[in-house]
Computed example of a mutant assay.
Amino acid sequence: MVDKAEYFGDGLIIKDGNDCRITKVGKILRRMSLDELPQLFNVLKGDMSFIGPRPPVVYHPYDGYVNYSDFAKKRFEMRPGITGLAQVRMRNSATWDERIKVDVEYIDNFSLLLDIKILFLTIFSLFNKEEFTS
């Protein structure tokens, strides 16, 4: 995506692959389900992990960290991941509140076995030919 894409257009929402904020390279990466590949740099830096809750931002879906419920604030307690339970369970077919609920479920049930399951489900989804938007 272009720099600061979340501040114009539909914000953090991407409705289709023709979004003008997506670069040519980004379209190719998205088509191949590799659009999170650049996040590997963040994993190497230690800012992210491979598997974890989706990286939260304090301004969406609630306006500021203080406006998150205590339940939703749990997302900030764990290092975010490139893939996670919400991504393999529902992709982008859910509301933010539903995704937060699944992210907190992941945090509450965190285990190596769950991470292995998410890893295999992620790999499976890469080879699944269904068209997804992210």
Rank of each mutant, 00 (worst) to 15 (best):
S134K: 07
V25Y: 10
V66L: 09
M78L: 14
E6M: 14
P80A: 01
A72T: 10
N109E: 11
D70W: 06
V25I: 15
S134V: 12
E131S: 15
V43W: 07
Y65S: 06
I14C: 08
F120Y: 10
R79Q: 14
F76A: 06
R75A: 03
L34Y: 12
P80I: 01
T23N: 10
D3K: 15
L119E: 03
S33D: 09
V66W: 02
S125T: 12
Y59E: 14
I14W: 02
P38F: 07
Y62H: 11
D19M: 06
L119K: 02
R91G: 06
D16W: 07
G81Q: 01
D63F: 05
I28K: 09
I116Q: 09
F8Q: 12
P38R: 07
E98W: 05
D16M: 09
R89E: 05
D35V: 11
S93P: 01
R75I: 04
N128R: 10
V2G: 04
A72R: 05
I22A: 03
R91P: 02
R99D: 00
R99Y: 03
I123A: 15
V102N: 04
A94N: 06
D19P: 06
G9L: 04
E6R: 13
G52E: 02
D3E: 15
I107D: 05
K4C: 08
Y65E: 07
I14V: 15
P56F: 01
P53M: 03
W96K: 07
L37W: 15
K73G: 06
